[in-house]
Design a protein around this nucleic acid. Structure first.
Lengths: 215, 215
DNA sequence: ACCTGAACACCGTTCAAGT
DNA sequence: ACCTGAACACCGTTCAAGT
């Protein structure tokens, strides 16, 4: 219940130490005690800067959001969307252990609102109707974050990798499509190309709304 | 290194106890010790059935996948996709604490492969080219899971909720789009309608590929 | 075949105190 | 204003043993 004021002076230093530990040893190894140790502090010293561990994780999410690109508003709206999407994927690949936090924690920070506003503006500039902007932003952001997380968490690669082994044990009656698609499922996927193709498909959706009837 | 064989007899009983604890007290409260306690066992008894806690979490993911609908193959391929997507969202809303595990853990289980195969088959039946099926499946699944997780984890609702408070402190120069969209951002969103609209948009993408040139 | 007991090396967090 | 020390109530997991 106490509303004790948090110090801000060393907040970013602490967040960066936490990110470094997660990068080096994984998210499971990220503990208040280890963050403190890395900074030469007692665990309790951190509680002057963050209310608890969840609060520190939210700090990490905020930090990740500051790493997103802020494209020149003079660019074409499509380019702004593409640059932001690619930037999000880059952040994921450079911070694989902590990036999935973006999906687990609500994040209503200042950084989050600013990032969302940039997407809203790009969609408005493209001519998306006012009442559709928020939904399309969520559609695109949800997919882009989901793709980036799937990539770094192994949801994509592990599943394509292990398919052959599974298929041997599962027979064509149980897996009709997999057996027909065998030629296309085995090769290692070019994730850069897949992400670009997905972005192009999302732009198809957006542009399908532009010329449409007013009501 | 030891490849000690796991017992299977009580695996599903243990998974269901774990799911029940997560539902009642949240994912953070899900511990090996509490699962054991609920079953009247010692924590160590669980290690005869699961290699470790991660293995038990994978068991939960497998359980969630068995809850997905298995639509009648005689239905139109579009209806099969829609039913599967809605079913996934239903599973998320009835298991909010554990559903996000689907995105965090690779999951190459038998159940996962079967679920993916059904989507592949629907896309093939719709006429999607063989070399596009796997990508489109990942595109659709990533979005559907992402939407369902965002909804149950609060990523969607909390952010729309807190916007007004944020906006008061952030001024129209910093948030141009939010201020222009004020009328559309405040009201509580109808998530059922948003999900249906998103599904319709994804079907636009898929159908845009059907009549296309062969090469 | 299935389960227990004791132990180890950890956690997050509170409370009171120190400079 | 900033930090520490001791303590509490937990964790996952190993190893050896019990029936």
């Amino acid at each position: 219940v106490s509303v004790r004021k948090l110090k801000t002076t060393r907040q970013s230093e602490i967040v960066e130490a936490a990110v470094a530990i997660a990068r080096e040893k994984g998210l499971d190894a990220l503990s208040m005690r280890r963050v403190a140790e890395r900074l030469g502090l007692t665990p309790m010293a951190l509680y002057g800067y963050f209310r608890n561990k969840d609060d520190l994780l939210d700090g990490i999410v905020g930090y990740l959001l500051t790493l997103l690109p802020d494209p020149d508003p003079a660019l074409d709206w499509r380019d702004r969307l593409r640059l932001t999407a690619r930037g999000a994927r880059d952040v994921a690949r450079s911070h694989p252990a902590v990036f999935p936090l973006l999906f687990a924690r609500p994040s209503v920070s200042r950084e989050a609102v600013l990032a969302v506003d940039r997407i809203h503006q790009a969609l408005l500039d493209g001519g998306v109707a006012d009442d559709q902007v928020a939904r399309i932003e969520r559609l695109v952001s949800t997919f882009v974050l989901g793709f980036a997380i799937s990539e770094v968490s192994g949801r994509f690669s592990d599943s394509t990798l292990n398919l052959r082994g599974r298929r041997a044990r599962l027979g064509p009656e149980e897996l009709p499509a997999h057996h027909r698609l065998a030629a296309w499922l085995d090769p290692e996927v070019d994730w850069d190309a897949e992400f670009e193709a997905d972005l192009a498909d999302l732009l198809i959706v957006i542009e399908s709304k532009l010329g449409g009837a007013k009501e």
